[in-house]
Amino acid sequence: MAKARILLTGGRGMVGRNILEHPLADQWDFIAPGSHELDLTDFAATQRFMKEVKPDVVIHSAGRVGGIQANMAHPVDFLVTNVDLGRNVVLAAREAGVSKLLNLASSCMYPRNAVNPLHEDLILKGELEPTNEGYALAKIFATRLCQYVSRENPNLQYKTLIPCNLYGRHDKFSPAHSHLIPAIIHKVHQAKLHGLASVEIWGDGLARREFMYTGDLADAVLRGLARFEQLPDLMNIGLGHDFSINDYYTATAEVIGWEGNFMHDTTKPVGMKQKLVDIERQRTWGWMPATSLREGIQKAYQYYLQEGTHEL
């Protein structure tokens, strides 16, 4: 029996690579073109590719991603590029008659002042966090577009997973592009390497974040493919609990074996005070992540030592 054909966008990114290297990936025939093979910002090219490949399912994980510094420095790019990617992939899939699409969104779509945990119904119910507003708007656009497509044609099941913050293998560790945990790994490793007595933390470190190991998201995505009919059209994917920024620094220092002190710079931006997703739909669906914080940081650090430092 022939395997179902899956078109995976963003196959060279952190999420895409974790999906492809997951043991369950062998159950499907994955096509994961790089940007040099397919420019997803080119609608005509995306249309042609979709019609030629004729995938059974599309997983849309491509995106222009980065941490607070990158989002604040390039808001136009984070908005426009991600809107183009979402629009082109979803509409090209619809035109090609692809019946199933799984869109990967982001918990930054939730209002900055919403009560935690963040339930799926809160999208567009309040002001977004300014430090990554452009990226959030683009993700909201793609999510709503999937819902509209399915509303117009119930035979097209275009669903969205909203992961909490992610880290892990194939992450970006450059300070100009990294998210919180890879940035911490790099900073603490450099402190240990150079014998530094202290490491700076932006803000007071009390803001709370929910970070999930990316291999766990890959597991959820692939199990979602196997049980696509049972997937809600919109569902958070997360841990169900969070940690403070200080907790992440402490755990990383313990994994790396650095015993210095932390200094807080309260003049720097920290983003939302808390961002914890509601996982009731996820629990009902029957899935939970398996990787602990220290286990995940250890895996990410090993990748950093082997591969991540090459990207700096």
Rank of each mutant, 00 (worst) to 15 (best):
159 K>P: 05
190 Q>G: 05
147 Q>D: 12
305 L>G: 14
14 M>W: 06
260 G>Y: 04
114 A>D: 00
272 M>K: 03
25 A>Q: 10
263 M>P: 06
291 T>M: 05
233 D>Y: 02
67 G>E: 10
212 M>S: 08
31 I>G: 02
306 Q>P: 09
172 K>C: 02
2 A>H: 12
238 G>I: 00
303 Y>F: 15
259 E>W: 06
189 H>P: 11
16 G>S: 09
10 G>L: 06
226 A>N: 10
279 I>W: 03
242 D>N: 04
209 R>F: 07
139 K>T: 05
177 H>V: 00
216 D>G: 02
104 L>E: 01
64 R>K: 13
136 A>H: 03
8 L>W: 04
149 V>W: 09
283 R>H: 09
55 P>D: 06
85 L>C: 03
100 K>W: 14
121 D>R: 07
70 A>M: 03
45 A>P: 15
283 R>P: 03
92 A>E: 11
147 Q>M: 08
223 R>W: 15
176 A>F: 01
222 L>W: 13
242 D>H: 10
182 P>L: 02
305 L>E: 15
238 G>N: 05
42 D>H: 14
29 D>E: 14
132 N>H: 11
97 G>T: 14
227 R>K: 08
95 E>G: 03
128 L>W: 12
191 A>T: 10
211 F>L: 11
31 I>R: 09
189 H>A: 12
46 T>V: 07
72 M>F: 13
32 A>W: 07
35 S>C: 12
71 N>I: 04
199 V>M: 02
212 M>W: 00
293 L>D: 10
266 T>Y: 12
40 L>P: 13
61 S>Q: 11
